[in-house]
Simulated scan of single mutants.
Amino acid sequence: MSYVISMLMIIILGTIIGFIGLADAQLELGYYAQSCPKAEEIVQGFVHKHIPNAQSLAAPLLRMQFHDCFVRGCDGSVLLDVTAAGNNDTEKTANPNLTLRGFGFIDGVKSLLEAECPGVVSCADIIALVARDSIWTIGGPWWPVPTGRRDGSISNATEALQNIPPPFSNFSSLQTIFASKGLDLKDLVLLSGAHTIGVAHCPSFSERLYNFSGQGYGQDPSLDSEYAANLKQRKCTTPSDNTTIVEMDPGSFRTFDLSYYKLLLKRRGLFQSDAALTKSSTTLSYIKQLVNGPLDTFFDEFSQAMVKMGQVEVLTGSAGQIRKRCAFVNQ
């Protein structure tokens, strides 16, 4: 198994290395080689120690990077806490982030890095490295993470609401939001593939079951009726259920695989935003190509999309700061 993973890493690295060369020159592989040589080793060691005993945390840590990068770019702003000094409306307080988990995990990594190299490794880079290492640890794809991001000092709940694609997004809104981040339709399909792992809370999709607004239906007609009935009878039994969690990729939600895309073709995507991917001939074609291809192709292309997303609107050079604590701006 280790040999297969190693070979896959080599193939992915060879495919992506040219892509990285087109990236912002201030982000680079091994950015901390001189300033903190053990940085990536420390991150990987922490992840490999804890994720095998808490595999359900891998999905939230990956989701954290999505939510960070879509608001002010990949600058660690999603980590900032409400403070008594008036920063009382941070991204953490926005509805899309209320179910985020893993902040303590990031803080644990940051503490080790501060002990090794004080004031050197950014929280934004920690998010990116932890997301990659967590997915790889559970058997998912590996991708190179160029580093050198700096941390932002602004975190605003309203901006999170405006920029994080909600689960009830239609195709047009998804296309617009992704395009605003320099991401295309193929990136949209590939990054949505992260829904192959993890769970969701009922309010993120219950309107599809009980009150599909604006269409004159009680239930979303694009949702497979048998799947919908199962959700209503066994999971989200009432529209007001705020506590039940549901697997986004039923029967395979712990495995990074192609099952999510296969379910989309059966009209069993959990979110309206999942179903929206089948409404465009372009995105539907990408989905079918993935389903009919080998898993390695998905891993390779997902990796490329993650590298691309990880460089959205990054702060580098003298911009931003290196936070001493990820939840607070340096004073």
Rank of each mutant, 00 (worst) to 15 (best):
P52I: 03
G73V: 04
F66S: 07
L57M: 15
F70R: 06
L79C: 03
F70W: 10
Q44K: 12
G73E: 03
Q55W: 04
S77N: 12
L62M: 14
F66N: 13
C74H: 08
F70I: 04
A58T: 08
C69Q: 02
H50M: 11
M64T: 00
P60D: 00
M64G: 05
Q65E: 15
Q44H: 07
Q55I: 15
R63E: 14
Q44W: 01
V43Q: 05
P60R: 02
I42S: 10
L79A: 08
Q44V: 06
P52M: 06
F70C: 08
A59W: 10
V47E: 08
H48K: 14
A59I: 11
A58Y: 02
S56I: 04
Q55F: 01
R63T: 14
I42G: 12
Q44R: 13
H67E: 15
Q44P: 00
V71W: 11
N53H: 15
H50D: 14
M64Y: 02
F66L: 10
L80D: 04
E41I: 11
Q44A: 07
P60T: 01
V78D: 05
F66Q: 13
G45M: 03
G45S: 14
F46H: 12
A59P: 04
L80H: 03
K49G: 14
I42N: 13
P60E: 03
G73W: 04
V43H: 09
H48A: 09
I51T: 03
A54Y: 09
L80S: 01
V78S: 06
F46M: 05
L57Y: 11
C74Y: 06
H48C: 05
A54N: 15
G45C: 02
